[in-house]
Design a protein around this nucleic acid. Sequence first.
DNA 1: CTATAATATCAATATAGATTGATATTTGCC
DNA 2: GGCAAATATCAATCTATATTGATATTATAG
Lengths: 101, 101
Amino acid sequence: MKFDCCKTKKSKNNLDQTTEFLKVIAEPNRLKILCILRKQEKCVCEIWQFLDLPQNLISHHLKVLKDFGLIGSRKEGTKVFYFLNKKSIKKFNSLMSHFIK
Amino acid sequence: MKFDCCKTKKSKNNLDQTTEFLKVIAEPNRLKILCILRKQEKCVCEIWQFLDLPQNLISHHLKVLKDFGLIGSRKEGTKVFYFLNKKSIKKFNSLMSHFIK
DNA sequence: CTATAATATCAATATAGATTGATATTTGCC
DNA sequence: GGCAAATATCAATCTATATTGATATTATAG
């Protein structure tokens, strides 16, 4: 399989997307969140128990992950449950493998 | 295969290493360098032709990649050739897959 | 309809790291 | 030795983003 690193507009676009993806996950707490959610969805307070971070900071990291589409959320009463968007993660992993593998 | 996200000291260590790896590659120019080197080793001036960056900045990114062990270098006259450290890249890709895949 | 639990938002600050400009080092050549 | 090419280093600045503190929102219970 051939892959030019950045000559075509398409591969340039792929590189940019991959970089954004990597920036989003290159943060220990976010990576931990993704790892925790692999097993099953969790509400913020459950995630909080894992992370030893102030609540608002967890909200922030969740927002970064969600804005990028790596996780989704659903409300249940006063709680918000977050879950992996496995399709999206798979897509970016595959994109990334064009550049480094 | 079971993998606790961060409870044991070992998986905590894996998470830290993975995060560092991701930080190193979460930069478009460095990612491009890695991509370019996949085909074959290149000297700085060849890499420079691809990157449209000032020479010293390329040296800097190469240093980051080399310090982290993702690339190696050899001198030939006045030129310095850089090449992928495939073993190292494979190792970190595998580490990363514990957290996200 | 007030209080509380769960979560989110926002502005301010701190910090890490990319970029720039200037200069240094190394090597080969005359 | 003196010069030029190739590359590296260093200090200064700029920029993005993590963190903090305070406050807002939303939903349920009483």
